[in-house]
Nucleic acid binder design. Sequence first.
DNA 1: CAGTATCCAGGCGGATACTG
DNA 2: CAGTATCCGCCTGGATACTG
Lengths: 152, 152
Amino acid sequence: MDTRVTDPDGDAPAAKGRVPAAKREALAAKGEAFTEDCAPRRVLELFSAKWTSHVLHAMQALYGGTCRPGALQRALPGLSKKMLTQTLRELERDGLVAREVHHVVPPRVDYSLTPLGRTMIEPIEMLYAWARDHEAELSALGLRAPSRRRKA
Amino acid sequence: MDTRVTDPDGDAPAAKGRVPAAKREALAAKGEAFTEDCAPRRVLELFSAKWTSHVLHAMQALYGGTCRPGALQRALPGLSKKMLTQTLRELERDGLVAREVHHVVPPRVDYSLTPLGRTMIEPIEMLYAWARDHEAELSALGLRAPSRRRKA
DNA sequence: CAGTATCCAGGCGGATACTG
DNA sequence: CAGTATCCGCCTGGATACTG
């Protein structure tokens, strides 16, 4: 059955960088616009997932690109050791941060942003900048309530 | 890029790239760097949470800022009706999208990006751009596995 | 200090059914 | 078509304890 909606389309205000009508129709119809395995989906997953952004941001903004796990945890209240490790592992897997172990008596480990990781800082900073710039507008609306609320 | 930290009080780090050593130490020590209720945390929460980015992106890129829920769902394979509604509700609450109901026989609703919502498109596009630009570098590493895997 | 392993509650989110 | 409500599996993520 043709589930295609009436699609008035009369509204479609020609935007700048959007997909041409014909093209997007094809995309939407075929459902190929944002398949599970497209780059954006995967990256947004990485991004959206957990503490990735915060960890990367803290590493760069607070410590200039290199720091020890303890420092990160102290800088990010609420981030448990478990999540910190997990996040760092993921970032390491993806080549965004590098892990350097110093075999000394009190174990010491340094994590640093890789070149690739550094490139990701820009988008992240955009988000932080946006957050700061529109904080008032968001707060004015009552702000987050139903979403990911956690007990404590 | 000024990766200055959240700036709790009125500190004015003339630093170009980062917080002065002394200051950041204080921040980290006091744990005031990224408190639960700072703007970035809240926004990243909104961002990171679910399908927000994808919905906003699809609305803008595919439909120029306005579209019907059905269209979004078709454009985003994997997005259930439940999540779609929930996401739209949140975005509406935060004033990023506007909901317009047309009381006709087959119910028709249009969602559009608000001015505020439109401003959020930029950061989102940055992410998408980054994703595309570094897709190869990420894939080369084996890419996501342990994270949010889902059965199907 | 850095990291792992285990236990376990809570929520996230899918499937389904139903209303307007 | 748009939206809500319910049921429920599963994964996320905190707490705790233990190793090096």
